[in-house]
Amino acid sequence: MAWDTDSFPAHQIRMFVGDGRALEAPDQSYDILFSNSVIEHVGTWEDQQAFADEARRVRKDLWIQTPAYECRIEPHYVGFYIHRFPKKWQKALIRWITLRGWIHRPTQAQVDDEVNSIRLLTREEVATLFPDCEILTERMLGLIPKSYIAFRKARD
């Protein structure tokens, strides 16, 4: 669902569709960049680096959240430790040992596409991608890392 700018003209929100790895925007052109659970879907480590570089380039402040690789539960499939298996095993097991597999019964092609399109990040990787940001850890039950947030408040 797209944002309907005509219905909310006072908000002055512009929406555009583009590739987060190569944004068509000048440097520092936005006051804030907000991304919730996107960077793990952009592809390879190199794609994630490009996404992070673009986010840091076009923003003044940013908030980028991503699920934690270290979490015991993989959030896309709701399965214990499934993301720690080799991709070949994930593709074979997701339909049979995860909540998503039991409820939604994805086809093997859907499972293959999802497994190939998700790359969860460790805390160290998030810190590497966002060296000028504070890295916050959201925890489950107060103990287990659930997600990481790269946060930056620009100094004006």
Rank of each mutant, 00 (worst) to 15 (best):
M1T: 13
A2D: 11
A2P: 12
A2F: 08
T5D: 13
T5A: 15
D6S: 13
D6F: 09
D6W: 08
P9W: 02
P9K: 06
A10T: 13
H11Y: 12
I13D: 03
M15E: 15
G18E: 02
D19N: 00
G20Y: 02
G20T: 06
A22K: 06
L23T: 08
L23E: 07
A25R: 14
A25E: 07
P26C: 10
S29R: 02
S29E: 09
S29Q: 09
S29M: 09
D31Q: 11
D31N: 11
L33T: 11
F34W: 10
S35M: 04
S35H: 05
S35L: 06
S37P: 05
V42L: 04
G43Q: 03
G43F: 02
A52C: 01
A52S: 01
A52K: 02
A52R: 03
E54L: 05
E54S: 01
A55T: 06
A55H: 05
R56G: 01
R57P: 00
D61E: 05
W63Y: 15
I64V: 13
P67E: 03
P67V: 09
A68R: 07
I73C: 06
I73P: 03
E74N: 08
E74T: 02
P75Q: 00
H76P: 03
H76F: 08
Y77V: 14
Y77G: 11
V78F: 14
G79A: 07
G79W: 06
F80G: 06
I82C: 07
R84T: 14
P86F: 04
K88L: 08
K88G: 09
Q90R: 07
K91H: 03
A92L: 13
A92P: 07
L93P: 03
R95V: 10
R95F: 10
W96L: 14
I97P: 01
T98A: 02
T98M: 06
L99S: 09
R100I: 10
R100C: 11
R100Y: 13
G101Y: 01
H104Y: 13
H104F: 13
H104K: 15
H104T: 14
R105C: 06
Q110P: 01
D112L: 07
E114F: 08
N116P: 00
N116S: 09
S117M: 00
I118Y: 00
R119N: 08
L120M: 12
L121D: 02
L121E: 04
R123I: 03
R123H: 13
R123T: 01
E124G: 15
E124N: 12
E125L: 03
E125G: 01
A127Q: 14
A127N: 01
L129Q: 00
L129V: 00
L129Y: 04
P131Q: 07
C133L: 01
C133S: 12
C133P: 06
T137S: 07
E138A: 15
R139P: 07
M140S: 12
M140C: 13
M140D: 10
L141W: 15
G142F: 04
L143M: 11
P145F: 08
F151C: 09
A154G: 14
R155T: 14
D156Q: 12
